[in-house]
Structures are given as structure tokens and as C-alpha cells.
Design a protein around this nucleic acid. Sequence first.
DNA 1: CGATTCGATCAAATCGATTCGACTAAGATA
DNA 2: TATCTTAGTCGAATCGATTTGATCGAATCG
Lengths: 316, 316
Amino acid sequence: MSEATKERVRAAAEQLGYAGPDPRAASLRRGRSGIVGVLLEDRLADAFRDPINIAMLDGIAEETGAVGAGLLLLTESGTELANVTAAPMDAAILIACSTRLDESVARLRQRGLPLVAIEADDIDGVLAIGLDNREATARGAQHLRELGHSRVAVVALPIETGGASGPLPRDWDERATSFTALERLRGARDVFGSFDGWIADGSTIEAGYEAAMALLSSERIPRPTAIIAQSDLVAIGVIRAARQLRLSVPEDLSVLGFDGIDIAEEYELTTLVQPAQLKGRAAGRAVVELLAGGFPEPVGFTCELRIGATTGPAPS
Amino acid sequence: MSEATKERVRAAAEQLGYAGPDPRAASLRRGRSGIVGVLLEDRLADAFRDPINIAMLDGIAEETGAVGAGLLLLTESGTELANVTAAPMDAAILIACSTRLDESVARLRQRGLPLVAIEADDIDGVLAIGLDNREATARGAQHLRELGHSRVAVVALPIETGGASGPLPRDWDERATSFTALERLRGARDVFGSFDGWIADGSTIEAGYEAAMALLSSERIPRPTAIIAQSDLVAIGVIRAARQLRLSVPEDLSVLGFDGIDIAEEYELTTLVQPAQLKGRAAGRAVVELLAGGFPEPVGFTCELRIGATTGPAPS
DNA sequence: CGATTCGATCAAATCGATTCGACTAAGATA
DNA sequence: TATCTTAGTCGAATCGATTTGATCGAATCG
């Protein structure tokens, strides 16, 4: 096209007040909107309070951003089911969703969207990005056992959406719908058989504090010598509760975390370090491949046990 | 419609493999996609590292989610300019964007989208959600002056996109494009006239630590008796650097923060508490109103000076 | 009983970019 | 010179839901 013509077109567009090609029309015709949905279980503030989720999201953004796709945040709460149905996205990434029963996931599948799930049950047609939650927790538990601990308690992440915090029910294996929490519980059981536990209100320091207070000052159950926390934030809360109760860590109480977030290093937390950003990147890359018509393989990541200063020999 | 007909339709849809109404087509016809864009200056991981942004985003989500709109995350980096142009959104919220010159903002305006800017220069047709950055900083600075400080230094947030960390240039008033950093610098100038300063690498503890190390161990400039940090995270970094250098806070060095994030309370930080979530809510509500054809008013929020344990009388 | 109205049903036009096919013109080759 | 490419233009069909206007039947009212 000649430069003069270009200019003439530009001028005409200007005069007519043409605001540029309408993305809506383009996406209808092309069948692509350039949007990848990210479905989060929690409400936004909760989801982003945990550095793990942020790292994952960042990994996702890195890969999807590279092909010019935007990230649409979707939460399952309330009226937003409409959102899941009506959002013009090309694919979706499910983060920590209870995929088994969930209605929104069903809708997404029904729409025929390529789906990638991070840490979820295997589902037909949904590409899984996994983490060895169970084995990793077992490894951490084994570490505690080797230190002589036998009376351990678990502070679990919420095991079902909308569930309240409180003592971990005996039948958690049947009741839990949150995949990650469930797998980590199983890992603890693999080593210790049965144990007491408390469900925290989320992956936050405060929730960990509350839970540990309940566990450590209960008259109903004997005080554990070690606590397996299902996240580092929770573990930090546990440590604070112990301090509050004048228990020293690790002399009186050993604390095991999960995640390996930055702040855990300051506390010299013994924890299971997971590659959160890589997980996100893998999910992002999988989505990109799926959209390009490829057939990406499921990916599984493993955690590394990092021994810090919060676990020690069981008190005699 | 009769129940029988309904069922017949449903069956037919099932048989034809109809995947539900196509949101792309609906959004073309209706002229609405149900998506609100959120334009962030930083890359995602940086933006979400600061609890302030998360709180804001949560506030936004609360209001936009209530009308069934999803949030599309957009960053200005690299190839994503295409994104800003091609994303099918109904409106956009600009967070901490350098609105004056920015190309992406120009594109958004050109597209005729309703725009809401949080903490930005006034622009025609862009609804402003403001914060009294300048006055609040001045109030904090005044507090320091009343404590007898005269040699203060500022650790500033990045004053331009892509700018490196380093000493604060004398001509910051002309060079800065980041509205928030600029206003807070002006607030400090209102009270102290001139001062030394260092530009941090972002709103993180590490960046604050680096900056304070540079400021406090410099041989070029006399050691300040107080440091004005432009965010709480930075302030915490400053405190750590002071500790590292065996300076006690507030005896040897007073530290003033900004934001009032949760973690600041643990440090008993003297800081300017801003209503971050309200800011987000206001922006969200404004967008909703704009989309409904209303004419919302600009909103301005104010910070509250919370005096903690990190500021004290200047050493004699 | 005829006329009016209300509701339901259906066909057609619309949103705006993209893509496909046809057609034209200019240049290259036999 | 005639034919065949190649490039470039242009009109028309398409994506799929929504909305409007028209048509029809039934029920109500005078």
C-alpha cells in the first residue's frame, strides 16, 4: 500500500472518529479472544495473600504474556458463576480448585475450553500440572519421626470451600474436597498413621496462630511435640503461638512448614521447598501449546526438604 | 415457554453438541464484554509483592464482581501493548501509571473506553481516585521536624519506569514520571526544603535495605538522623539495614513509613495509614457507574499519621 | 359476533472485523 | 502479440447471539 493512501485512510478514520478495530468483532470472527482465564478458589485477597500463588501467577503471566494473551481473574464466589459462563476466554487455568464436584469446572468443560489444572484430581481432558504433595509431606514427616517425634499434630489448610476452621474431623479423607490439603494430610498419615489436627482459616500467619493456639492449649488432647503446618505462613503463625505460650522452638516444639517462601528463610524454617514459579510457567506453557493445537504432556514437580532451625529432637 | 419445549430444546442442543452461547458473539452484539481491564505499571510479581496493591485489587474486585464483571490483568511491558489494544474490555482502571505520556493510556483513551485512574495526574475524561500523598508525607515530615530532626533522607520508590536504583537526582521534580513517588517527594520538600535521597528498586524490603545501606554508609553525605521511606516495605528494609549497621531505631535513626500495611504493626512503624481497600472499592464503584452511564465524582482519600515506635527525638 | 389487545413465535437485520473468491491490471515469458 | 503470472482490489459471505418488527392465535371486551 502506498504511503499516500495510508495517510488518506488515516485521515478519514480520524474524521469519522474511528476508534480502531473492535476487539469484540475480531474475536468473534477469529474465534479467539486472546484471553486466558485463571480460576481461583478463594476470593482475591485471600488468594494473593500467599506468595506461592503470586509466584505461580507470575510464572503463568510470563508464558501467556509472551504470546500476547491477557489473564482474566475469575473467582468462584457468588454471582461470578455467570462470569465463568460468559467470559470470552480461549482457555483456562484452574488453581487449587476442587475439580471433582465443582460446578464452574463443569461449565468450563462443557464449553469445550482447553483446561489446565494446577494441583487437582485427574480429570479427562484436563491437563494436570502436579506437585508431589503427599510424598513431600511424608518426607518431612519422616524427618520428624527420625528426630524421635511420635506425637505430632497437623495444621491443615481448609479442606473444603466455605468450611469453617476447627478441629480436623476423623473422617477427613472422605470429607476433604481441597486436593492439596487432602494430599498433604495423606502424606502425614503415611508416616504417622493417625494424628490430631486443626483446620486453619486459610494460608495466613493469623490463621496458623489461631490454629496452633487451639492445638497447643487444648486440654482435650495431649500437647504434640511437633506440628506439621501445611504452609509456611501457617508455620510462622504456629511459631508465634508457641512463643506466646512460652514454648521454645525447636526445643519444646518442632515446626515443619511447606512451600519455601522467602520469608521462611528469615525464620530458618524447616520446610518443603516447592518450585512455585516453575509450576506457573509450566501451566502457562501448556496453555499456550494447547491453544496452538499441540498436545502437551502433564508435568509433575517435586519438593525439596530444606532442613532449617525449627525442627529438632523430640523432648524426652 | 412450556417445560416440554424446554426439554426438547435441551435435548437437541445436547445432540448437536452445542456448547452454550458463545460469549464472543454476545459481546459483539451487546457491545459489552463484561470485562474490566486493570493496567499495572510493574510486572505482575512486583505489583503483587506489595500488600497495598493487593488490597486495592481486592477492593476493585469486590465492586466489579458484584455486577458480574471479570478483571483482566494488563501490564505495560513489552509485547503486551498489543494486549491493551486488542483486549475486549468495557473499561479500564489504571493503577499507578504514568498517565502523562504513556502510550498505552493514549491507546485506551483513543478507544473511547471509560477510564478510572488511581493516583495519577489529572487527565481530561479520566476519572481520578486520589490520595493526599503530598500532604500526608508533609504531615509525617512535620512530625519528624517537631522531634528535632533536620538532616533527613528519603528512600523513594522508582520515579520513572525502567529507571535504575541509585542516588536521587537533584532534578527529580522534572524527571519523575511516577505520580505517587513524585507527590511524596514534594511533600518532603514542603517541610524540609532539600534533602538527600536514594531511589529504591521497588516497594520491597530488599530494595529498602539496599537503599538504606547506601544512604547510611555513604562517605559522601553526612548520616541522616531520620529516613522517610515511601512505603512500609521499604521502611522495614531500612530498619534492617540500620540494625545491620548497629544503629538503633529510633535512638540513632528515626524511620517513617507509608501505607499502614499489616506487617507494619508488628514493627510498630510510625507510618501514614492509607485506606487501600477503600481506594480500590471507590475505583471499582466508579467503573460500575460509568458503565451504567452515570457520572461519578472524583474521590480523594486521606492518610492518617499513626505514630509508632520507630520515630523519636533527634540525637543531639 | 366483531374488534381490540395481549402474548407468543418467527424471520430478518444487526454488531464489525475477517477471510475467501473473483476480478482487474500490470508485468514477464514464449 | 498472445498467454501466463503475479499482485493488488473489491465485493460478499461468515462468525453467532441479540434485537427488532412482523405475523399469528387466542383471549378479552364492547
